[in-house]
Amino acid sequence: MGTMTLNEIRKNKIETYFKKIDSGLFDDEYFDLYTEDVEMYYPKFGFEKGKQGIKNFGRVIGKHLEKLTHDMHNFRYIFSDSIIVVEGNEKGMTRSGKEWPDYTTSFGKFCNVFEFDDELIKRVHIYVDPDFASEDTERLIIFRNESQYVKEHSVSQTKDVVEEFYDLQFGRKEGNIVDLFADVVDWDLPGNKEKFPWTGKRETKQEIEQFFHELYDHIKSESFVIDFISVDGENAAVAGHLTSKILKYDKVFSTEFVVIFKVINGKIVKYHFLEDSYTLNEEMK
């Protein structure tokens, strides 16, 4: 070993490991870094054993990454007996051409744990997010700061869904309005259901579809004016006034209204329609 300590030799081996990975040069010098029974772990991939296992992993990861670069000058090393932990930053490009990290949802942080048998690596466990380009949107929604996600993403989506709802309801756009709803919906339109069968609570798409049939069987809309739409993340409030002819009673009813929407993942999960249901009940006799 000359004047070099064992830890210095091991650190040099680790540096060679990263240089080979960054250059994509997996030659004899690279595989000579390992013991014959080396163990490797990578998130979502799992474990491999032996040099052939290292080759198997290389083929898998190579299908997803076009290039990979580690910031070796700023590595942090932690030495403990036969184990060296390396913490640092990496960047790269996927096969689809997406560069990472974007420093918004991906940050390129990683940590490798190397265990040595004398001068050879007998175990390397890699701890890193395998979703390099942050394309796993479902998990991003869960793990990102909720208020930040709502602020950046939900407002425009909620407004678009609400506007499409009214475009479909009033024939400005073709399509099935029921498709805008989630499979389970918190739906409420308070009223005397015995006199006004379109009122009440509903939950399923089938019940919502029935609502529109019942509504148009019993009323004729004479005006429906939206004064404003207010959006706060996943929630929206629509205020306005309407005039409808109640066919059974042959009477016209006018009221102000507020509709409460909640939109998650592009689907309406809450719809509460609030109007002067007391006056409606009193006038329709």
Score class of each variant (00 low, 15 high):
30 Y>W: 06
108 G>F: 04
239 A>K: 15
135 E>R: 13
106 S>A: 08
11 K>D: 05
248 K>W: 06
110 F>N: 00
201 K>H: 12
169 Q>W: 13
32 D>I: 06
235 N>T: 13
112 N>V: 09
146 E>M: 13
129 D>H: 00
240 G>T: 04
62 G>I: 05
50 G>A: 03
126 I>E: 10
96 S>F: 09
280 L>Y: 03
206 Q>V: 13
70 H>W: 01
137 T>H: 13
61 I>A: 11
214 E>F: 11
273 F>N: 01
203 E>T: 08
271 Y>E: 08
89 N>Q: 14
144 R>H: 11
218 H>R: 12
124 V>D: 07
9 I>E: 12
200 G>N: 01
18 F>Y: 14
16 T>W: 04
275 E>M: 12
231 V>N: 01
83 I>A: 14
257 F>D: 03
123 R>Q: 12
203 E>I: 06
157 Q>D: 10
165 F>D: 00
198 W>G: 02
223 S>R: 14
152 E>R: 14
16 T>Y: 07
220 K>W: 06
38 V>E: 03
22 D>T: 09
284 M>K: 10
207 E>M: 05
261 F>V: 00
225 V>L: 11
105 T>E: 02
183 D>N: 10
8 E>L: 09
141 I>E: 07
230 S>P: 03
3 T>Y: 14
213 H>V: 06
20 K>R: 07
170 F>C: 04
278 Y>T: 13
228 F>N: 15
140 L>M: 14
68 L>F: 05
283 E>M: 14
39 E>D: 12
62 G>H: 06
153 H>W: 11
166 Y>N: 01
200 G>R: 07
46 G>P: 04
231 V>M: 06
179 D>H: 12
160 D>G: 07
105 T>A: 12
209 E>L: 12
263 V>H: 03
112 N>M: 10
262 K>N: 09
87 E>D: 10
190 P>R: 04
43 P>W: 00
160 D>A: 15
166 Y>L: 09
228 F>E: 15
80 S>H: 14
232 D>T: 12
90 E>Q: 14
143 F>W: 13
209 E>A: 15
270 K>L: 09
146 E>N: 15
141 I>W: 00
137 T>G: 09
161 V>G: 00
127 Y>W: 02
49 K>I: 11
65 L>S: 07
261 F>T: 01
284 M>Q: 08
3 T>A: 15
18 F>R: 08
169 Q>L: 15
39 E>S: 15
61 I>D: 12
103 Y>K: 10
70 H>P: 00
46 G>H: 01
82 S>A: 15
18 F>H: 08
281 N>P: 00
248 K>P: 07
73 H>I: 09
173 K>C: 02
264 I>R: 03
279 T>A: 13
205 K>M: 03
80 S>N: 14
271 Y>M: 04
102 D>K: 09
35 T>I: 05
99 E>I: 10
67 K>N: 11
9 I>C: 08
69 T>E: 14
190 P>L: 04
236 A>E: 00
9 I>K: 13
